[in-house]
Computed example of a mutant assay.
Amino acid sequence: MNVVDLFCGIGGVAHGLHQAEGFNTLFANDVDADMCESFKLNMPEVSVICDSIANVQFKQLIGKKKVDIVLGGPPCQAYSTSGKRLMEDPRAMLYQQYYRALVETQPQMFVYENVRGLLSMANGKLFDEVQRLFASLGYFVEAKVLNAADFGVPQERERVIVVGVRDGIKFEYPKPTHISAQKTNTDLFDGSLPSHITLGEAIGDLPFIAAGETGYEYSSAPQNDYQKLMRENAPKKLMNHSAASHGEALMRVIRNVPEGGIKKDIPEEFRPKSGFPNSYGRLWWNRPSMTITRNLGTPSSARCIHPKCDRALTTREGARLQSFPDDYVFYGSRSKMNLQIGNAVPPLLAKAIANQIKKALS
């Protein structure tokens, strides 16, 4: 099945398709140079066009090839409920370029991924416009919110998945493979699904390092199936498991954040005066991570403090929580790599969707 991968980032979707098998990516496109380099390092067989989507000539690129699926999620910052949500942001209008891609490639099916905030942007009018525009091309369009944690990703990450299909094609959204631990304690739970993978289960074999330190050796053999999956083709030495240094003032704050705590839980004498309510948040060891963002190394920005170490997450820990395997290579500075990871589609979520695409088009 021939795929066009738009807003491809570092290849979260492409890696998920590769795991599902049966897909051929004709080309991928993104405007960020570092992300394109990361994509190329991991999938050198795919042609990557590093340019604004507005400059991509789809008809020329595909020639006489048939396109089965167009995939992609425009940058989400304009829609995110944690951002300013400005309609004037040009990124909020990139769905129009996605529409142009559909017009020029005429795929059997498309998948459009974005943050849940897309549903409520401009009081829902933007999402209505997106659906109307895509449906005008003859697609049956539906949307559903999926939580990555329900599909084996150790992270609570809700995303809107908009799917459009031509007449005669039936697509069914993937059914969860995991369930919240809270639900396993209810009478409605039949015991057929395992609990969500926790942060501890995801990164427990990575060495506990202090702020400013780097770890190169695993602390143990794989302890569970998730760790085995992440380490299938792992290099002998860990990559990108380097903790940022924090100043003494920030270290005093971090040391006083309890597990699962946020700014309000810090004793008043150490509590920062500025910051959002969820700033300086520490994660839980026995729960999935909260949504990983580009600021996974910045304690003052989001809930990203390691549950047991007094520091922010490392790049490799962030990658694990997004379900990128340990042999996945990231290009650029630490902040650029963290941005790439935070903006990515978790490969395991992409794989679950890809398996349903195969069923729909078979």
Score class of each variant (00 low, 15 high):
A360P: 06
V3G: 09
R255K: 10
K144I: 09
K237S: 15
L339T: 04
Y99T: 12
Y328D: 11
V145N: 03
M337V: 09
A101D: 09
E213V: 05
A352Q: 03
K236C: 06
G204T: 15
E158S: 04
K263E: 10
D167Y: 01
H241R: 08
V153W: 00
E248D: 13
A344Y: 00
Y173G: 03
N2Q: 09
V165D: 00
N42L: 10
R311W: 05
K236S: 14
Y173D: 03
N278F: 07
E158D: 12
P267E: 02
P267H: 00
V103K: 14
E317L: 03
V31C: 14
Y139C: 02
C50W: 06
Q19C: 10
R294S: 12
I341P: 08
I10Y: 04
S180N: 13
N338F: 05
K237N: 15
R231N: 13
A211G: 01
Q57E: 15
I62E: 08
L118N: 00
G191Y: 10
G318A: 05
E37C: 01
S245C: 10
Y79H: 00
P174S: 06
E45Y: 02
S289Y: 01
F7N: 10
V145L: 02
T291V: 05
V163C: 02
L137V: 09
Y79A: 00
S136I: 06
K59M: 10
R132L: 13
S335G: 02
G73F: 01
Y173V: 03
R132K: 14
D34H: 12
Q340T: 01
E201C: 05
V165H: 02
H196A: 12
K64T: 14
A243I: 06
N224D: 09
E88D: 15
P346T: 11
Y280G: 01
P258N: 03
A78Q: 02
M87N: 04
N343I: 05
E232M: 14
M87R: 09
G275H: 06
A14M: 04
V111L: 03
L193Y: 14
T81F: 09
K237E: 11
L61K: 15
G138C: 00
K59F: 08
P107E: 05
R334Q: 13
D327W: 13
Q108H: 06
V31K: 15
S274R: 11
M109W: 02
G200S: 15
G191M: 10
F27G: 12
L238I: 15
V162S: 07
T177A: 04
F110W: 03
S220A: 06
F151A: 10
V70H: 03
E37Y: 03
P288Y: 08
W284D: 08
H178P: 06
P325R: 12
E317Q: 00
Y98S: 05
Y139Q: 01
N338Q: 10
K64M: 12
N338K: 07
I209R: 11
F140T: 14
E269M: 12
Y139V: 00
Q155N: 11
V153D: 01
I203H: 04
G342I: 04
N185I: 11
D205Y: 11
I357S: 07
P346V: 14
T81Q: 07
T315F: 01
M337P: 01
P154R: 05
A244Q: 15
A211H: 11
A54Y: 14
I169M: 00
P174E: 05
E104L: 08
L6F: 10
G168E: 06
T293N: 05
G261Y: 04
Y280V: 00
H246N: 10
I49L: 15
Y112W: 08
V153G: 11
L339P: 01
